[in-house]
Design a protein around this nucleic acid. Structure first.
Lengths: 148, 148
DNA sequence: CTATTAGACGATAAGTATTATCGTCCGTCA
DNA sequence: TGACGGACGATAATACTTATCGTCTAATAG
């Protein structure tokens, strides 16, 4: 178990400057809490822990700043599919093309991949069932909308 | 534009029998609506369309039956990550190991893949940014829990 | 073909997760 | 130092999903 080195205020200011964000105390603490929590905690879990450092913090601030960090490219979302329940009717093995702008999902057959990933090392005891590949990008419609 | 052949009542009954489900009218219409809607519509969108065929249908029935179909293996979820917002702190290129039971997410470095997928064919105009690979299976802890 | 019964249905209340609004406050720059 | 813009916190509002419960229907045994 090794400690995660703490990000000093100076480099946090630089990070913010690079992404056009004001370097506030709340943001630094939020970032630090996220950095030191293992796994991929939910906003609620982050909030609970952050509240221990800044009791007056609000959950809305956590959401607002996570979204802001994502918008400005400081963080990425784990998945593009977290809005609502979606299911597969397509029986063949296939994967997805996901537009990061409009979130549209298009199926793409497994045969259209020339190569499939193969895992060399796995954490002990994990039993693999299948792969799900998301190809993330910008769809034709959103590109058109952007350039206009 | 070709029509999607409609599933007749007989084969729907077989489908249900195979998965231990009662073949109700609502379920058949739900299944049929989902089958004939393009893309991956949300439960609300499915409900809206289904309501045109069965005005008395309830949104709760849509949710209940989608879940039931998923449980029994008739359908699959598009993504394992639709509970709540999760973000990435991990800077390196990496992917995820996802337990389909407990939904835990573990990072896995890109180097641990011997081969990365390559796309041969793309729908015109889609601009690829990156790949996100989920390796779906059962984690060690859930296997232990299952076997005990 | 009918009676029985488990499971399905629909209405609706409740529970999560998330976002918007708004008044106030703080840091920066003139 | 004063004005301004962005950030904050409280809270209301909204979206999404699940639970509950009384009624009804499909499966099936006779």
């Amino acid at each position: 178990m090794h400690d995660i080195p703490s990000l000093d205020a100076r480099s946090f200011r630089e990070l913010c400057a690079d992404h056009g964000l004001a370097a506030t105390h709340q943001r630094q603490m939020l970032y630090d809490v996220m950095r030191t929590m293992p796994g991929h905690p939910s906003p609620e879990e982050i909030y609970a822990r952050l509240k221990r450092r800044i009791p007056a913090i609000s959950l809305a601030t956590v959401y607002k700043n996570i979204h802001l960090f994502v918008e400005r490219g400081v963080l990425k979302e784990v998945s593009m599919h977290h809005g609502s329940l979606r299911v597969e009717m397509n029986g063949h093995p296939h994967h997805h093309l996901v537009c990061s702008q409009c979130k549209a999902i298009t199926d793409i057959e497994e045969e259209d991949f020339g190569m499939l990933p193969t895992l060399q090392r796995l954490p002990g005891g994990f039993e693999v069932d299948r792969y799900a590949i998301d190809v993330i990008g910008i769809c034709a419609a959103c590109q058109k909308a952007k350039s206009s």
